[in-house]
Design a protein around this nucleic acid. Structure first.
Length: 104
DNA sequence: AGAATGACGTCTG
DNA sequence: ACAGACGCCATTC
């Protein structure tokens, strides 16, 4: 198994470790997976996540606390709803990172 | 091989 | 606070 697959597995592991009610940023996860600066790679991995995976992908937001989808998209609404179900509410389309960001 | 793409981040004005 | 410009990484055309 090459380093790529290893980083991906580590990434999935970190995402699975995000506690209920907290969020992590793409860049933060890249760093935790041993790939500092590869925030866009994290986005790529999530984009191609199998539908049956049980990862809490909705707990992943941008560094500024915004959701990575356009506000009118279906995915945005879905992620928003999942966050609200965890008692995370958006203010002006943003998560309050000071309050909700996961700090391992 | 080189350019384009995207579920990103940071710096600047 | 916010939009635009650049920079990044891996992947795809």
């Amino acid at each position: 198994m090459d380093n790529q697959e290893l980083a991906k597995l580590q990434l999935y592991q970190m995402i699975a470790a995000i506690p209920h009610g907290r969020v992590a940023s793409y860049g933060q996860l890249a760093h935790l997976a041993g790939r500092s600066g590869a925030a866009r790679w994290v986005g790529y991995c999530l984009r191609h996540l199998p539908a049956d995976s049980n990862l809490p992908w909705h707990r992943v937001v941008t560094a500024s606390g915004k959701l990575a989808f356009s506000v009118n998209s279906h995915n945005y609404k879905r992620q928003h709803q999942l966050l609200v179900s965890e008692n995370i509410h958006l203010q002006h389309h943003k998560v309050d990172m000071k309050q909700y960001q996961w700090r391992p």
